[in-house]
Nucleic acid binder design. Structure first.
Lengths: 290, 290
DNA sequence: CAGCCCATGCACGTCACCCTCGACCAGGCG
DNA sequence: CGCCTGGTCGAGGGTGACGTGCATGGGCTG
């Protein structure tokens, strides 16, 4: 049994119009074509779909059941053609972005919102990782774009510098370190260091040389911030995440010898020719207020 | 743009196997046929579905999106053919039953349960009405079967007598009428009569001649029973509904002059040739314990 | 009741399209 | 380098989907 879409269309048109003639007119065919298609359908299904006992041919109950399924089939066809039209519009089908965890996600999410309002068919996949892992993931996922704080090494990428990001070594105001006028690297050694998991050694910056007594690894900067706010320990946090807490005094920048501020120069890297959705990403990420 | 199911099948097979050759083998075609079908698909959709830059042809992101929809389409086709197979099994596609409200619904619902366990594709529609309205509904809905307490008038029906049903005039034990040793029709006049809405005059039986001071019309016998149990008034109820309450004494049969019991002889009437599901109905309704 | 119209259904012809066949080219793999 | 698998192209054929013509027969209008 091999039902065709033409048969389904004929069945649907016949059911809606009630006669072969009208159905044929709707399908821009001759009535015998509809007759032929539906005869075929009946033969292939091996069911009595039509009641020809009266003057007008009518659907049998079995025909009605088959009609339901045929309409579902046509709906699936319509859906397929709809996505084809969407894809023809020029939007990329998918946009894969890898972002360094230290970079704010907000502008990337804004891209998703803008694509929605423009009814773009683009499906967005966002991955977050740290430092070198960003480029590895970019390659492994064959992503379209990445925001990395390390210079990209892959050849053939279009790169674009982004505004600098600053990170500070902070602790909660009630934390012992926060009360000192000066903090030495030796002072840090006795306290708990909070880091983001997956960060490689370079993220630990000035603290990397220290032999920390205890360290907590957390999955992202939001939980890291929450941990530090809870007074659990100290660590590096990007400025955009803590402007509020620094202003309110909930978090305190530690007066570390040799400086407690580290600056990153993130880069936006794109693979091959950017489509409109990628362009949207470039605009929003580059225009991000510093 | 007119995508065909063959194209969808080819796309699916190609995506699963990875090569034209293997896809062709699976479809029992020559590999050029698959090539042809997919070239057609690409031309019709106007999209680049395949990446032919490498040695092996691969799906592009757009191709993957189209593939998803194509698979949905094939799933719809599979569903259609599945219902065709179900309907070929000999079961009726639909079974419409109209039952008099005074008749217990339990045996009809048991039919539904049995059809389920036998995986019958039959869809069951049950309507409930009273007396003459049963046959009217049977005709209006072109139902398959009905259980009526009046002799069917339509020609060409197969009828089958069912066990008798009894109804009693009852009231709650705390009701004034329940405390009398004898009840006359005049006594009834001062109390509230509870009836089922839609019942025509014949249902009121011995009470019809009375000029009731107040009457309550309810949608079915279950709410009527609840109303009587709440002491609201008196009325006729079928025995099967109140065996428990009569045994416990919660309800009392009124000792009406001239008899407080009325017997019905319900009939099961079928239109034309009964299918297996209808046969199931006949068995269960006829074997109903009296 | 006559006349008309429309819907159905069959027989037959034909044309388009799907498929097959054959040939050639491109990369991988020993 | 030789072999194999996989992709692409063009030519040709078989058949099945569809159009034409016509008969039938039921409804509708006057």
């Amino acid at each position: 049994m091999h039902v065709t879409l033409d048969q389904a269309r004929a069945l649907d048109a016949f059911a809606r119009t009630g006669t072969y003639q009208a159905a044929a007119k709707e399908l821009r065919k001759v009535h015998t074509a509809v007759l032929y298609a539906l005869k075929q359908l009946e033969a292939q299904t091996g069911l009595e779909l039509f009641d020809r006992s009266g003057y007008r041919t009518r659907l049998t109950p079995a025909g009605t059941r088959v009609l339901e399924k045929a309409r579902a089939l046509l709906e699936a066809e319509r859906a397929l053609e709809a996505t084809c039209h969407e894809l023809q519009s020029g939007w990329e089908p998918v946009l894969r972005v890898v972002v360094d965890a230290i970079f704010p996600l907000a502008p990337v999410l804004e891209v998703v919102r803008r694509l929605r309002v423009q009814r773009a068919p683009t499906r967005v996949f966002v991955s977050v990782d740290s430092l070198g892992a960003v480029e590895q993931r970019f390659e492994a996922e064959r992503a379209t774009a990445m925001v990395t704080v390390l210079p990209p090494t892959l050849p053939g990428l279009t790169t674009r510098p982004l505004p600098r990001l600053q990170a500070r070594l902070v602790a909660h105001r009630a934390h012992p370190l926060a009360k000192r006028r000066k903090v030495s690297t030796a002072d840090l050694a006795g306290e708990v260091l909070v880091t983001v998991r997956g960060s490689d050694v370079r993220l630990q910056l000035a603290t990397r040389a220290l032999d920390q007594q205890s360290t907590v690894h957390l999955p992202d900067f939001h939980s890291k911030k929450a941990a530090i706010l809870a007074g659990l320990g100290f660590g590096w946090l990007p400025d955009w995440l803590i402007t509020d807490e620094l202003a309110r005094g909930a978090l305190v920048a530690l007066p570390l010898e040799g400086g407690a501020v580290h600056a990153f120069s993130p880069t936006l890297a794109l693979r091959d020719a950017p489509g409109p959705a990628t362009q949207e990403l470039v605009d929003l990420v580059a225009r991000r207020p510093t």
